[in-house]
Design a protein around this nucleic acid. Structure first.
Length: 508
RNA sequence: GGCCUGUUGGUCUAGCGGUCUAGGACGCCGCCCUCUCACGGCGGAAACCAGGGGUUCGAAUCCCCUACAGGCUACCA
């Protein structure tokens, strides 16, 4: 051991690159660099049904855009590769086999139905511990002959960890360095987790523990959602006879609404590609994210220094980083404050930097717009026109509706209102099916036919709700880029604005 | 339901037993600067430190209980 820390982030390449990934990456990188350590990127693509190469590329691009570069990873290599879990399946299988041989894991032939039945039974009995554990596990009791028989028949199986059950009330404990305290769980509360799936791929738990050990990870800084499963991981480290890394759990970014639930695309933009296309300066986004997870000390600072201490660069963060100052409370993601910080950064720029940034952003914006790029370009008369007059609606959180626009829909206001409601409901129901422009096209036609809305009216209504105006970029492509969830909230907003408008007119 | 975690103004936070009649930032309001807006400057409203019990000469700070919020409870990570 050299004494230099090695940390990692391990994003899954599913869907859009998430701000949460950048947030965790930022803390990890600051931690590593402040101690002259290494920051590693590992791709956790063990979920074969959801992982895509495009998503992986988007993670690379987005993190690089933010300057969150890594020392080792799938694209740059390193001494502990491969850094993509899908390329390490034999390793996991080998280690699962070791556990099997040691008698610390077992093959489980239960089907989905078996598990559902088990769960139902447990619920009926109101057992405090649910899940697949010890005496509830039929496959634990299988004799070697029975196992052989099932295997010969070709029954699919998973490999599960055999959680020690001699002493169910004993505690399994680890130290959380962020919360600065021990956290523990009873053995009886931990189920016999699946280690290797039927398809031969590992679950997160197995792959994560093996990789962290094999890659020499010394400190694990990850999201708070992992706290409860950390004891499972400790169990695995014990089973292998390995020393566990030190754990730091980072509080989750939250939606800025009343309840502060985990930040999600259903409620707000979370894609790093969105932030980039929206025109945020990378250093500003970084600074803002750092504020969410880390707070600087005011000690020894003058009044003036205190009033500007929220503004700092990645380098400054690295130089003064103190792990003990990582926050433990879940911060609401305040888009408003992000804007303020972004303003501060643009003000610090020179004209040259500003132009370079605008150019870079414009290029990226066109890429982001995809099929709409040409349409956007064609709407310019002269190059001095502001691009955001045309594309701004993609990047505003809330639109303000000019109520005269609604007059362009040739329908009575009350009917428009109910149309917005129908649209909202249908989009919500079909949310998972609405991805491409064609999906939106089909869906809108369906509603139009089903409810007897004229094609012209429904399209105009959607156009106004989505873009805030009666003239805009081609509709279906726009909706696809906006994403279903933001469309839904815009139907809400537009409906609300219209309702207010109707009320005001009545009062007059 | 069970388990785990968190709780200082609307939001992000400083604070680690007396210096707190709780400081800063964002947002909000007002004034000044000014041809407008933005920037900047000044000022203001906004937190009885979730609530209740302890411990202590003394608690936002330590302990306990309750409430609320979040997370997890998948062959997803």
């Amino acid at each position: 051991m050299t004494g230099q820390p090695r940390v990692r982030i391990a994003p899954s390449p599913t869907g859009e690159p998430h701000v949460g990934t950048a947030y965790i990456a930022l803390i990890n990188r600051a931690f590593a660099k402040s101690q002259n350590g290494k920051f590693i990127l590992r791709i956790e693509d063990t979920d074969q049904t959801r992982s895509t190469a495009a998503s992986e590329q988007a993670i690379f691009d987005s993190l690089k855009w933010l300057g969150l570069t890594w020392d080792e990873g799938p694209d740059v290599g390193g001494p502990y590769g491969p850094y993509r879990q899908s390329e390490r399946t034999e390793i996991y299988q080998r280690y699962a086999q070791i556990l099997l041989e040691k008698g610390l894991a077992y093959k489980c032939f239960c089907t989905k139905e078996d598990l559902a039945a088990l769960r139902e039974k447990q619920e009926k009995e109101k057992k405090p511990a649910q899940g697949y554990f010890a005496q509830d596990s039929p496959c634990r009791k299988l004799t070697p002959e029975q196992i052989k028989e099932k295997e010969a028949k070709g029954e699919p199986y998973v490999i599960r960890l055999k959680v020690p059950d001699e002493n169910p009330d004993a505690l399994i404990t680890f130290y959380d360095h962020t919360r600065k305290k021990e956290i523990s769980r009873k053995y009886s509360e931990i189920d016999d987790q699946v280690l290797l799936k039927t398809d031969g791929f590992p679950t997160y738990h197995l792959a994560n523990v093996i990789d962290d050990h094999l890659m020499g990870i010394t400190h694990v800084l990850r999201g708070e959602e992992w706290i409860v499963s950390t004891p499972k991981h400790i169990l695995l480290y014990n089973a292998f006879g390995w020393e566990a890394p030190k754990f730091y759990h980072l509080s989750l970014l939250r939606n800025p609404d009343k309840n502060k639930s985990k930040i999600s695309k259903r409620k707000n933009p979370v894609s790093l590609r969105w932030f980039r296309a929206a025109g945020y300066v990378p250093d500003a986004l970084l600074n803002f994210l750092a504020l969410m997870g880390y707070s600087r000390s005011a000690e020894g600072k003058t009044k003036e220094e205190i009033s500007s201490m929220e503004l700092f660069s990645m380098d400054e963060l690295i130089h003064e980083f103190i792990p003990g100052r990582i926050s433990t409370t879940g911060p609401a993601f305040d888009y408003n404050k992000l804007d303020a910080i972004n303003d501060a950064y643009t003000q610090k720029m020179t004209i040259e930097e500003f132009c370079a940034y605008k150019d870079e952003r414009l290029k990226y914006l066109m890429e982001y717009l995809g099929p709409l790029a040409v349409e956007t370009k064609n709407r310019f008369r002269r190059l001095n026109k502001e691009i955001d007059d045309i594309t701004g609606f993609f990047f505003k959180l809330r639109l303000s509706y000019d109520c005269d626009e609604f007059n362009k829909i040739k329908m009575p206001p009350a009917e428009i209102l109910s149309m917005f409601k129908t649209l909202k409901k249908t989009f919500k129901d079909k949310a998972l099916l609405l991805n491409n422009p064609a999906d939106f096209h089909e869906c809108i036609n369906e509603i139009s036919e089903r409810c007897g809305y004229s094609s012209k009216s429904i399209h105009m209504a959607i156009r106004i709700a989505a873009s805030g105006e009666g003239e805009s970029l081609p509709l279906y492509e726009s909706l696809a880029l906006l994403g279903v969830y933001r469309c839904i909230s815009r139907f809400d907003d537009a409906g609300e604005a219209l309702e207010k408008h109707i009320k005001e007119r009545k009062e007059k």
